[in-house]
Design a protein around this nucleic acid. Structure first.
Lengths: 119, 119
DNA sequence: CTCGACGGTATCCATTGGTAACTGGCTACT
DNA sequence: AGTAGCCAGTTACCAATGGATACCGTCGAG
């Protein structure tokens, strides 16, 4: 019944992960780093409208979770390079499944919303 | 190739969906309704520590998105039944991919966190 | 001597997530 | 008669989070 590693358990493993996946920027960082390491500002530019504070938070959390590595080159001007770890890269597949679903169903969702709001 | 329906576009379809998937309770609702329709309190009990206000918000949003249907029986005491739509049910697959990933990698993540915090 | 590159902080405000208490109509118990 | 309880929420309120804007230090270039 229900799930194995039970999503309904407050201490549930899955919840922890979903909080990451669901995070607005984590997914974008993973996709951005897919084709190779990037520096802070490169990520910033690539992702778009993300505040530096928020990007920093996201990257720190991802580093803590072992999804990316952060390498600092003590040069001037500073250089920091972010790279996907193998575990981080392994997220690309699952993420793609979700984005595919999203692209497939978005028209239906938009339609449903319009219908609901119209009523 | 980056994405098609580009996740970096602020008006991106994928972002809209990820906001739902990432929502703390939506996933739990989908999984709860997987095996059949449920009433409000049944959902509440099944999911656990969710405040009624928050559950209501979640359900309304899901209804608007066309993921569930809400049927009201004007009885006393009231009866409201929530059911997955076909579109809602089609989310089970993608969600499972994520939860599988989560269960597989959780040990590694926990370890990474411990290592990071230890430093 | 001022400017810009880089990788961030500091400060502040708005939105959201969440808690606790209450509603209303009816029935069942005492 | 009074009281308690069921269901499906709502209301009022508070804390945490997300995000915009501005600023920092160090250095070389002009």
């Amino acid at each position: 019944m229900v799930t194995k590693g039970n999503a309904f358990d407050p201490n549930c493993p899955t919840r922890t992960i979903l909080d990451r996946i669901g995070d607005k920027w984590t997914v974008l960082v993973v996709l951005s780093l897919r084709s190779g390491p990037l520096r802070f500002t490169e990520l910033r530019d690539r992702i778009g409208q993300v505040a530096p504070k928020v990007l920093t938070q996201t990257l720190r959390r991802m580093e803590r979770d072992g999804l990316i590595t952060r390498e600092v080159y003590p040069e001037i001007p500073p250089k920091v390079v972010y790279t996907l770890t193998p575990m981080g890269a392994s997220l690309i597949g699952p993420i793609s499944v979700i984005t595919d679903w999203a692209e497939t169903h978005l028209p239906a969702i938009t339609k449903a919303q319009a219908a609901y709001d119209g009523v």
